[in-house]
Computed example of a mutant assay.
Amino acid sequence: MTVLVIQVNSLRKKNKPVVGVGCASTRDTSAALSAYCASANIPSIMFLPANKISMAQLVQPIANGAFVLSIDTDFDGCMQLIWEVTAELPIYLANSLNSLRLEAQKTAAIEILQQFDWEVPDWVIVLGGNLGNIYAFYKGFHMCKELGLVDRIPRLVCAQAANANPLYLYYKAGWKEFKPVKANTTFASAIQIGDPVSIDRAVYALKNCDGIVEEAMEEELMDAMAQADSTRMFICPHTGVALTALMKLRKSGVNGANDRTVVVSTAHGLKFTQSKIDYHSNDIKDMACRFANPPVSVSADFGSVMDVLKKYLLSKAPKY
């Protein structure tokens, strides 16, 4: 977003007819864009699907002064509308159809290599929604290989929620024919996308790195999130999708025990507190919530507290 807003700022200083920047969003795109636009004093316009994002996701663009349209549709509907609007009005489109987004996002791949002292990981697992990210990561890794900084690129895995899995279905069909899907509700709300705009670029990237597409059922992604949280990560449901992909690939033997794997985490868990509360309260319909950790109600007396503590500590005692 820094790259994109700098470009818009430059256009406006040259008196180009750009009245603002707009995007369709379900998550951090709107937060980042509105923040940088506020810093540059550029109007930002957000198309958000009504009642499909958390309050923590909604509050950021509002607080940053964005003009927010809450539209009675899903992300795909918002994307179609802003595409039509930006064709008619001088609003700069900030979604991943804009190549500047992808050029800037590829720096994440460069950072991974840098942090590994230029030793290439075997796998990188990236979340897949509108599918710009998977292509951007490929571009970053491929550029480093062309520059001679590394001698190979990692295999990429694109992870999708089973309730919004058009790329996964395309992959399983042997790349025969792409068919958009009607995305169903998923806890990984940011990737509730049935007709991704970067589908062709994503397929190109995956084909050129022997990539894989995996999916996660709702219970799988929520269990993965809870397991990661218990190790102090405190991740979002979307990262739970990526971790589920890792677990499945490890279980099938495709991902080896000694393989170095990077899982890209996409948001902080504080943006998804309600889903975590529901999970740990065993309050999600048709979900076992195997790793739920609800609080224990206890009377306010010493004996009751001691009984509960003894039972808990006994369950945690080493088994010899």
Rank of each mutant, 00 (worst) to 15 (best):
N9I: 01
S34E: 10
V19N: 11
D28E: 15
N95H: 08
S304I: 02
R12F: 01
A38E: 03
A288H: 08
F141Y: 12
M1I: 07
A224Y: 01
Q80R: 14
R260V: 14
C209Q: 09
S281T: 03
L309R: 10
L314D: 14
S275R: 04
L102H: 06
Q115I: 05
K248C: 07
C37Q: 09
A66W: 07
D200A: 10
S96G: 02
Q274V: 06
N64G: 00
L221N: 04
E111W: 06
V305A: 07
H142L: 05
V19P: 00
I134N: 11
H142W: 07
I6D: 15
S281R: 09
D76V: 03
I112K: 04
M287A: 14
Q192K: 13
M217A: 09
E111V: 00
L131E: 07
A50F: 07
V18K: 01
Y36Q: 07
Q160M: 09
T244W: 15
L4S: 10
G256W: 03
A161Y: 12
T73L: 00
A162R: 13
P43C: 06
Q192H: 06
C144Q: 15
E119I: 10
D122K: 06
E215D: 15
L131A: 09
T29I: 09
V124L: 00
D259R: 02
C209R: 08
I53A: 01
T107V: 14
S54R: 08
P295A: 15
I134K: 08
G128V: 05
A164W: 09
A35P: 02
S30W: 04
K271L: 12
